[in-house]
Design a binder for these strands. Structure first.
Length: 187
DNA sequence: AGGGTCAAAGTGGCCC
DNA sequence: GGGCCACTTTGACCCT
């Protein structure tokens, strides 16, 4: 039933028939029951073969010249207007699909950017926290945390000492065997 | 039966 | 003025 060719143009050969989708007799019978308006013909459905050929043509070119339109209409036994409408709607469907794809892509972009933004915000928070708490060191003598800013270095022996004068830390450079050693208790 | 979906076709505006 | 596009209407069909 679906593939019945109900798309024959009305007899008479005139391009713009008032009821292009069926004979006048059919319209007389069905008009009142189906159509919303008194002069609205039943809507056609292209056959599978017609749709296939239209698609084939659409793959080759998305728009038709008047000659191509005419030729396709003849080939499919449709009116040129129907071919034109089909191509218009087909272009609209293509565009809609493309827009939907772009929409999905942008949604994914938004998602990953939101995630990266969250990650960077966390990083900023961590860096801020590190700056707020001043760096401290544990002195070997008192075993208490001491502000790093309170440390000074002895210009002579290059030992790091607390501002109080007591030696606090030995820098890595102090491990240098060439660094002058304190006289040992044995000497 | 009726609600949803799809596609054919109508309409009006814009552009060349 | 014809062709195209965006938007809308409407009929056919499908599913529950």
């Amino acid at each position: 039933m679906r593939d019945l060719d109900m798309n024959q143009p009305a007899s008479g050969g005139e391009e713009e028939e008032e009821f292009p989708m069926g004979s006048v007799e059919e319209d007389e019978e069905e008009r009142g029951a189906v159509a919303s308006g008194p002069h609205r013909p039943k809507k056609l459905r292209l056959s599978k073969e017609q749709s296939r050929l239209m698609e084939e043509s659409f793959r080759l070119h998305h728009t038709l010249t008047p000659k191509q339109k005419e030729a396709l209409a003849v080939k499919l036994n449709l009116r040129p207007r129907q071919v034109e409408v089909w191509f218009q709607n087909r272009r609209a469907r293509t565009k809609l699909k493309q827009t939907e794809l772009e929409c999905e892509y942008l949604k994914r972009c938004f998602g990953s950017l939101t995630e990266e933004n969250r990650r960077l915000q966390r990083e900023v928070e961590e860096l801020r926290a590190m700056r707020v708490a001043p760096p401290t060191v544990i002195t070997p003598h008192t075993r208490q945390p001491l502000l790093a800013s309170a440390l000074t270095m002895c210009p002579r022996c290059e030992r790091i000492t607390a501002a109080t004068g007591a030696p606090a830390l030995r820098p890595a450079a102090a491990a240098n065997p060439f660094h002058p050693r304190r006289p040992s208790a044995a000497f």
